[in-house]
Design a protein around this nucleic acid. Structure first.
Lengths: 254, 254
DNA sequence: ATTTACATTGACGTTACGTCAAGGTGTATA
DNA sequence: TATACACCTTGACGTAACGTCAATGTAAAT
């Protein structure tokens, strides 16, 4: 079966403009152009559009979608399975939101009280999944699917107190690291304290701690510019300093 | 508890720019401006922001949200209950999408086949909920909540064949109406056939048919410019002609 | 006393399209 | 055979909901 723009747009429930735009940015090219210059779409394009709309539904940017679907290593079946997983996560997030609405209704009826933080529960989770959509692919490629999944899962499952604790811990790691950096010595007491705090912090995201993994993450902070940017924001060199401190802490050195 | 822009932005998981923008468009004004010109938010604003983010989550435009939350007749508790309902609907839509992904995976493994139409199932439903967000409020006000809810419910619950049938029927109504219009006589056989087709079409959306309700809807087509625009698109006067034909058909005339 | 962190108001940039305008194409009907 | 009329094309400008500077003022910490 072949489709012109309008036919396809009606089938997929999108506008013809959207199809022209997707052609323009090279995310979905028609199978061929007929003698009158009309765009003609075939079976392959139908399937690709389906993939695109799936990702769009998740809030992934078209640029990222383009990278995904036009990548030579793109595995459609694998993408679908990952996609399914994300839809399930989104549904869980929705459940949290619904629970939140229920709670808010109860609140408005004067039956319970809610902290300000609780009021935004469910939105918080959205940050996690956005992060996933943005960086998920690369991180997954480098560090394995299960690690990322389990990490996200733990964050989503955190209680409010746990979430507050991990946030506090994160600030303490940064502060201690800041102070330790002045000693300019990764083996210093302060630097080792920072490494230990960092281990504690990690354990909020990981099921099992190993020295090797800890050292690996510290190395990642230096290798991955996004993490480097995060740690070096206050003081350039902090990421590398943390890595060195962790290498001493774990006793791993090459 | 009082919050500055950054404090509130961190609490809610949004940017400070977003808060400035919401102030700018008058959707969320700070409780007060302190002596240095800083925006200070209080409890009322927290709750209002929560409402705003709830609606934003549903894909409602900020303009519509503004109308909703700044309306003098705005009933927060009622809004929350409606909101809860829509979240439930969204979750059902997600379930359809997930089922669709499952089917697509099975397809890619060669276990089943899928029609092109099926491939976009789940996206279709999105149109329904968008419509809801756009027109839902007004229509609900004029024609009652239950009617709208049940109508949407029926559409969402339709099988593919039913959906195709109702689409075909809709086209037939329009065509017959077109032809009947030329007779310029609402009592003509063609006009009455159009009214009958229209009744059949309606029954796809309604649980129970009554002549009064049918006549009411026909009148609405003339009163509500959006429906008038839809029917009169091909031929001005069609909406009024349909109303007259239905009035004859139902035997209701004042 | 001076960084540092946070606040302000412009003002221009961006994404993912919507919405004309001006014109070519294909088919049904007068 | 003409002529609607629906459908296609490529510009090109408009829009929503912010992101991202720049220039400047203020509060807190060192």
């Amino acid at each position: 079966m072949e489709y012109t723009v309008q036919k396809l747009s009606q089938l997929a429930g999108i506008s013809t403009r959207t199809l022209r735009y997707y052609d323009e940015i090279g995310i979905l090219k028609p199978a061929r152009i007929n003698s009158s210059g009309y765009r003609i779409y075939g079976q392959t394009e139908i399937n690709q559009l389906q993939q695109i709309l799936f990702y769009r539904e998740l809030g992934v940017s078209l640029e990222t979608i383009k990278d995904l679907v036009t990548s030579p290593s793109f595995d459609g079946a694998k993408a679908l399975r990952e996609h399914r997983q994300k839809l399930l996560e989104k549904r869980e997030q929705l459940d949290v939101l619904i629970a939140n609405v229920d709670k808010t209704i109860a609140l408005s009826e004067g039956r319970i009280t809610m902290t300000d933080k609780e009021k935004f529960k469910g939105f918080k989770q959205k940050l996690v999944s956005n992060n996933e959509a943005q960086y998920g692919k690369e991180i997954r490629e480098n560090y394995g699917d299960e690690t990322v999944d389990r990490s996200n899962q733990k964050v989503l499952g955190m209680s409010q107190e746990q979430y507050e604790e991990v946030t506090r811990l994160e600030a303490e790691v940064l502060q201690t690291l800041q102070d330790a950096f002045k000693t300019d010595d990764p083996t210093s007491e302060l630097a080792q304290k920072a490494a230990d705090l960092h281990r504690q912090w990690l354990c909020y995201y990981w099921d099992s701690y190993t020295k090797e993994a800890h050292a690996g993450v510290a190395q990642m902070y230096v290798d991955d510019e996004r993490f480097t940017a995060y740690y070096d924001a206050k003081q350039p060199g902090i990421a590398a300093f943390l890595r060195d401190a962790v290498l001493v802490y774990t006793g791993i050195k090459e």
